[in-house]
Nucleic acid binder design. Structure first.
Length: 576
DNA sequence: GTAGGGTTAG
């Protein structure tokens, strides 16, 4: 038997499999090895042997549970994982003593749900899992938890986790921590990470990957550093993935030099290592070094992929390297990487920001992939910057056609009109906004003070020190007005009076966070803020002035990049 | 006469 197993292990081609199949058939041993053969074929890395498995399966008169398992497992790995669910359904509808789903069947079917983001189906299998009596199977419960998280039901995932109580192990924690981190709930991910520690679990490389990712998102420097120390202490820094996550964490917490130190010391850099570092430099506006690294990776025998190009384009964007970026974009196809919608979006941004609106629009017109909402929004932003109302109207129409109901799109258009003093049109846009179900993504900012992350919403008054913060902002306002500051009220969204507009601007979340930093972070130490959206023009102006008047370095990470404010100017050189 | 399932970076 072991002999057949090892033969099977060494079958890599269809002809080998067929030979083995023929041999087993002639010796009458095939029925004893069928499931293994099916599994081997169904899970062949390139999917090339799956059709053969399906063929053999179809010609099996009464397939066993194991035969089904092999096929479901294989189908779950294909680009169309729902086929695995169809097969599972077929199996569970006609149960016999020999074909009853077992824990593995459920596990493979759940994998398919995770890949297909099929939440209702996952819930259905969940109830079957319970009915079949697999409720105590820790591995299966972890799979279940993972599916809920991946399919977007994080509360469902938490519930499964809490119900596992004593049976959960480090992998269950990992699934939850990673799920929360990837599901945009990084604070909860960190909470769970800390809880795992306090419950005596020993974090492994997977645990720290999830936790580091959460720190990246939150800009939680203190926690990130602690994790990195732990990683080094445990020797987990031999793991490339962990190093990549740490590079990303340091870069996103504002310490691009520290990120680079780690990058340099990774001896077996993977493609992701290079991409992460290039993206890090791009975010920090260091376009030159990013491009150098991009060139260098080729010399190290690492071939740039579509993410590398995106990172490099992004670097050109933020550094204003318009011609270089455009050249890079045009060279992609020749080097075997065909641009996707993100690359097109990036080059449209590059040209649009540089004021080459017609060139940007021409790219959109001629591109072979369908432009997405983000791309149109990028172009609309450029129209706003350069006051091109005609193009803004065309682009807005596209956005409306695509069903965009984002507040920002309408505001941009309205601001284009406002800048041209076309108040009638401004009113028309505002009217259109009232008649639609407009979605406004609430802006918020984080700042870390003594290891604690504080979160602020626009106009937030829920922070314990909010009165002091607002008082500080009054003072700031008074002092910056002496420098000739005038609020840029066209960034304000709603139809409100001038004074209210100014107030609404005054209390943008990033300003609250900076003010909180001013009152709570000791003299001279820099203030770090992370914002979920792009920083607004008024905040940018105000923070520049604050950095000068209060002699503070202020570092703001917005949705797109870092802004490092020092002595009255910003590292983005006002190009953003 | 039968192995195989959970968590993983840009």
């Amino acid at each position: 038997m072991a002999f057949v197993d090892s033969l099977l292990q060494n079958c890599h081609s269809l002809s080998h499999i067929k030979q083995l199949h023929a041999h087993l058939t002639t010796t009458g041993l095939f029925p004893f090895h069928r499931s293994k053969l099916l599994d081997r074929c169904a899970t062949s890395p390139s999917l090339s042997l799956l059709p053969y498995a399906a063929f053999v399966f179809r010609h099996t008169p009464s397939p066993s549970t194991n035969d089904y398992n092999a096929i479901i497992r294989g189908l779950a790995l294909t680009p169309t994982p729902t086929r695995a669910l169809t097969c599972y359904l077929h199996m569970s509808r006609a149960p016999t003593t020999t074909t009853r789903p077992d824990a593995l069947t459920c596990s493979f079917a759940l994998k398919a749900c995770a890949r297909a983001l099929a939440l209702p189906e996952a819930a259905q299998i969940h109830s079957q899992v319970t009915r079949f009596g697999f409720g105590l199977d820790a591995l299966l419960q972890t799979t279940l938890l993972d599916v809920y998280a991946k399919a977007g039901d994080l509360d469902g995932a938490r519930k499964v986790f809490e119900e596992m109580t004593s049976r959960r192990d480090i992998a269950s924690w990992n699934a939850l921590i990673a799920g929360l981190a990837q599901g945009n709930r990084p604070s909860e991910a960190l909470e769970m990470f800390k809880r795992a520690g306090s419950e005596g679990l020993r974090a492994n490389e997977v645990t720290v990957l999830g936790a580091l990712s959460a720190c990246s998102q939150l800009g939680a420097t203190r926690e990130g550093e602690k994790i990195w120390e732990y990683v080094r202490g445990e020797g987990l820094d031999l793991n490339v993935q962990v190093c990549n996550a740490a590079i990303d964490m340091y870069a996103k917490c504002g310490f691009v030099d520290k990120a680079y130190q780690i990058f340099e010391r990774v001896c077996r850099k993977s493609l992701v290592t290079w991409n992460t570092m290039i993206m890090a430099l791009a975010m920090h506006g260091d376009g030159r070094r990013a491009m150098e690294l991009f060139e260098e990776m080729g010399r190290f025998g690492v071939c740039p992929d579509s993410v590398s190009y995106l990172a490099a384009l992004c670097a050109c964007n933020h550094a204003g390297l318009v011609d270089e970026g455009f050249r890079l974009f045009n060279s992609m196809a020749g080097r075997g990487v065909s641009p996707n919608v993100k690359h097109y979006g990036s080059v449209v941004d590059l040209l649009g920001r540089a004021g080459r609106l017609e060139d940007a629009f021409e790219i959109v017109r001629s591109m072979p992939v369908v432009p997405d909402v983000v791309l149109w929004q990028t172009l609309l932003g450029a129209c706003k910057t350069y006051g091109n109302a005609d193009m803004a109207e065309q682009v807005s129409r596209k956005l409306v056609e695509m069903g965009s109901n984002s507040c920002g799109d309408f505001v941009l258009l309205s601001n284009v009109y406002a800048a041209l003093e076309r108040w009638g049109d401004v009113g028309r846009v505002r009217e259109a906004m009232k008649n639609r179900d407009i979605k406004k993504i609430p802006g918020f900012s984080y700042t870390e003070v003594e290891g604690v992350v504080h979160k602020f919403l626009n106009g937030d008054q829920s922070h314990p020190s909010w009165r002091e913060i607002y008082r500080k902002l009054e003072e700031v306002r008074f002092r910056i007005e002496a420098y000739g500051y005038v609020p840029e009220t066209n960034y304000v969204l709603h139809d409100i009076g001038q004074e209210d507009k100014e107030n609404a601007l005054c209390y943008h979340s990033e300003k609250l966070a900076v003010a909180f930093g001013l009152i709570s972070i000791s003299d001279r130490a820099s203030i770090q803020v992370i914002k979920n959206l792009r920083i607004c023009g008024d905040c940018h102006t105000v923070i520049k002035l604050i950095s000068k008047i209060y002699e503070r370095e202020i570092i703001v990470r917005d949705r797109a990049r870092f802004h490092r404010f020092k002595q009255g100017s910003c590292s983005c050189r006002d190009y953003w």
